[in-house]
Simulated scan of single mutants.
Amino acid sequence: MTTKLIPYLMSEDARKQAGFYVQALGGEIQSVMTFGQMPGTPEADQDKVMHLSVDVVGGLTIFMSEAHGGAVTYGRNICLSLNYDNVEAARAAFDGLAEEGGNIQFPLQLQPWGAFYGEVLDVFGVTWMIATQS
C-alpha cells in the first residue's frame, strides 16, 4: 500500500493563490473544477473553485478549494515545510514566497545544527518552513 500526504488549502481566491505558488516555486496548475460543475449550485457560487490541483517543487502536489459558505480563517496550527538539498534552491523558494507582501517570520540562515532554515508567512496567510538538509 502506498500513501501520500497532500496538503489541502482553503482559499479566498484559489486561482490567484495557485498562480502565486507556480510563480514562486515553479510548476503548473493541473486541474480546476468549479462549484458550477455540480448540479444545484447557486448562481453566485458558479465560478468558485471546488477543487484545484497544482504541482510545484519536484512533484509536490497541493490541492485547493475556495471557501464555500464562509470566510477562510488562518492560523499557525499547520505549516508547510519544504526541504531542499541545496541552499540556492531553498533561497529561491524562500524569496519567491516572501514576494507580494509576504512576511518573513524567521530569516533563512545557517542554523547551529548545520542546515539553513527560515519561515515566511505568504501573502495568503500560509506559513512555509524552508530548510536544507544538514
Rank of each mutant, 00 (worst) to 15 (best):
W128K: 11
G70M: 00
M50T: 05
T34Q: 03
G125W: 08
I78A: 07
P7S: 11
F35H: 13
F94R: 10
C79S: 14
D85H: 08
M38N: 10
A90G: 00
L9Y: 02
D13Q: 05
L121W: 07
L110W: 10
Q37N: 14
F124V: 15
F124P: 05
E99F: 02
N83K: 12
T3L: 12
T41L: 02
A92D: 06
I62K: 01
T34V: 04
T34G: 04
T132K: 01
G59F: 10
V126T: 06
F124K: 11
V54M: 07
S81T: 14
D122H: 14
S134A: 15
F106S: 03
P7M: 15
N77I: 04
S134L: 10
N83F: 08
P7T: 12
P39I: 14
G59Y: 08
A71K: 03
M50N: 14
M38Y: 09
Q109H: 13
E119G: 06
D55I: 13
A98T: 12
P7A: 12
A93S: 09
A14R: 02
T61L: 08
I62H: 01
I6M: 13
S31T: 06
T3D: 09
D85Q: 06
Q23A: 13
D45V: 06
A90P: 01
G40W: 07
F124S: 09
G19K: 08
M50Y: 04
Q23L: 13
G75L: 01
N86F: 15
E28V: 04
E43R: 00
P107N: 12
D122V: 11
L9G: 03
Q105A: 10
F106I: 04
T73P: 06
L108H: 15
E43V: 01
D45S: 05
R91K: 12
D122F: 11
F106A: 02
T41C: 02
G96K: 12
M33I: 01
M50R: 08
Q30M: 00
S11D: 04
V126S: 01
Q23C: 07
